[in-house]
């Protein structure tokens, strides 16, 4: 499913003294199946952009289109929109409320017209994708799990409707290293499912690893749009837009200061590792 924003603007508290312009005249096209990272300083409009795409906010000006259809036009099937777009908020474990894990995850597809059996299978698939043994936890209370587990249950609740567009707002915030690592494995799985993914994050390393395209926002405008390599090519711009270079870049810069040469700037751990391995095999110029 493709996403299009045509001259979209949005303000919070419009027409009041506290008006904040969150997005200004944003023009954007995201194709079917793309994996897009969204970065930028706090308050630059990332969450606003995501919520506009999900139809949780209505733009002040311009149109938000999914597969060419304006989602805010009268008559647009909102129920279908909810099914097609999965949204994982920050700290999604805060929205858990049901008495059992099965009911919690099934909440999103309760009114979708699926039979009880089909619903159960979807819930099973979603929980197993998140690394849970379905039979063992289905009757447990979702509130009795650890923080990282609660988060994975909440995300299962978002993907159970098998959305074509999945939006994640800083999904690894506050997670320990182990939980983050297991989350990344799940991202790889979801990527292969061919959904269009929008991933808001401050974690440059993860985005470089998984995203094919990164958007950088500043003060409500898209200031950079390209592959991870293009976006992180200029350290001055990285500094200016406060997007943080990530450990791979930092390490490669330190190495270059010591005299290492890379044919191509590594932006992924694999590339860094390959470069180092080649060097230690007796070459000085890496990447040949």
């Amino acid at each position: 499913m493709s996403i299009e924003l045509n001259h979209v603007s949005f303000c919070y508290d419009s027409h009041t003294a506290d008006e904040i312009a969150a997005l200004r005249e944003v023009e954007l096209f995201i194709g079917d199946g793309e994996f897009v990272g969204i970065m930028g300083h706090t308050g630059c409009g990332k969450t606003t952009l995501a919520q506009l795409v999900a139809g949780l906010l209505t733009p002040l000006a311009g149109a938000v289109k999914i597969d060419g259809a304006d989602i805010n036009k009268k008559g647009y099937d909102r129920k279908l929109l909810r099914k097609k777009v999965g949204f994982v908020f920050q700290y999604p474990e805060h929205q858990l409320f049901e008495t059992t894990v099965e009911r919690e995850v099934a909440f999103g597809i309760k009114n979708s017209g699926l039979s009880k059996g089909e619903q159960k299978e979807r819930v099973r698939a979603a929980l197993e994708c998140m690394g849970f043994p379905f039979e063992k936890i289905r009757k447990e209370s979702p509130l009795s799990f650890s923080g990282g587990e609660k988060r994975r249950i909440a995300i299962a609740g978002a993907i159970v409707s098998e959305p074509d567009i999945l939006i994640l707002d800083e999904p690894t915030a506050g997670l320990d290293a182990k939980s983050r690592a297991s989350f990344h494995k799940i991202m790889v799985k979801l990527n292969h499912r061919k959904a269009t993914v929008l991933w808001i994050s401050h974690d440059a390393d993860s985005l470089c690893e998984y995203a094919g395209r990164i958007l950088v926002l500043e003060k409500g405008k898209v200031v950079m749009d390209g592959t991870p390599r293009e976006v992180f090519a200029d350290p001055a711009k990285t500094e200016q837009y406060q997007i943080g270079a990530g450990r791979v870049r930092v390490i490669s810069e330190m190495l270059q200061k010591q005299g290492f040469r890379f044919r191509q700037e590594p932006i992924r751990y694999r590339e860094l590792l390959d470069g180092l391995c080649n060097h230690f095999k007796g070459r000085n110029v890496i990447g040949e």
Binding site: A54, K79, R82, K83, F87, Q95, N111, S161
Partner: peptide
Amino acid sequence: KEADQIRKAQIARGAE
């Protein structure tokens, strides 16, 4: 703000 976020999150999940 939290209530607003929770409301939106549940709407996004298909709450009616």
